[in-house]
């Protein structure tokens, strides 16, 4: 395990095909990718190239057809479904383009959900959630409903929700594309400051070239393959 200790994610020859009524769409055509601990990895590439499919496999919410994808040494495809749920609940944090906050829950309640899923009692969960909201600069808005918050604020609540249970891998799909440039920039700064950690890895799918600068490495995808992995946007 020694050599693997720095690899948060290791994908080997991952293939995923969608079957849409006769037509087979090859979304991932043999992906090889390694994401290191303490790293912010961006996944970029044209629309339809398979970015979302790849992070779905990495996050354990979609099963690949073949190949292996190890996350912290665990091969998600071969976990039993109960174990896989538990693995996700403990190790993965999600940030979505559309925030995906529960509209009838206030900020604190939304943030507390991953803790509740992990069996923390409601009171303790909400106390902890309030602390994390403080960290993302929304300490005063705990009682607000998502509809009462701006897009940037909602995304900050979502980031708090992705962090609250201290997961080891955070996956983000287009976290800034619903936000204006400045707000997107602030959200990235927040992610880099608060979420990135040497025991944790971040995978961010994005189109948004203005935030490429936040990446430690960038993987460029095209048509279901990783074209290249580079250290900075200039090399793309």
């Amino acid at each position: 395990m020694n050599g693997q200790s720095t690899a948060a994610v290791r994908c080997q020859n991952v293939v995923k095909t969608y079957d849409t009524g006769g037509d087979k769409v090859v979304a991932l055509g043999g992906i090889n990718l390694e994401i290191h601990m303490g790293e912010l990895m961006m996944l970029v590439g044209p629309s339809g190239c398979g970015k979302t499919t790849l992070i779905s496999v990495i996050a354990g919410i979609l099963d690949q057809d073949s190949g292996s994808c190890e996350v912290f040494g665990a091969d998600l495809l071969h976990l039993r479904s109960g174990e896989k749920l538990k693995f996700r609940a403990q190790n993965i944090g999600f940030v979505f383009q559309a925030y995906n906050l529960l509209p009838s829950l206030n900020a604190v309640e939304n943030v507390s959900i991953p803790l509740l899923i992990n069996g923390v009692k409601r009171q303790a969960a909400e106390r902890q959630a309030a602390q994390v909201l403080e960290q993302v600069g929304l300490g005063a808005r705990g009682k607000s409903l998502p509809s009462q918050l701006s897009g940037g604020q909602q995304q900050r609540v979502a980031i708090a929700r992705a962090l609250v249970h201290d997961p080891r891998l955070i996956v983000c799909d287009e976290p800034t594309s619903a936000l204006d440039h400045e707000t997107g920039h602030n959200v990235m700064e927040l992610l880099k400051q608060v979420a990135l950690h040497r025991d944790r890895a971040l995978v961010i799918v994005t189109h948004d070239s203005r935030i490429f600068g936040f990446a430690d490495r960038i993987a460029r995808m095209d048509d279901g393959h990783i074209e290249k992995v580079v250290d900075s946007a200039e090399d793309l």
């Binding site: 996050a59 919410i61 109960g82 749920l85 538990k86 693995f87 996700r88 609940a89 403990q90 993965i92 999600f94 979505f96 995906n100 529960l102 509209p103 959900i113 991953p114 899923i117 992990n118």
Partner: peptide, 16 residues
């Protein structure tokens, strides 16, 4: 359904 999907992705069991 989307809200249920989010809960499911975050690790909520079918039983719950």
């Amino acid at each position: 359904l989307r809200q249920f999907g989010v809960l499911k992705a975050m690790g909520t069991s079918n039983w719950t």
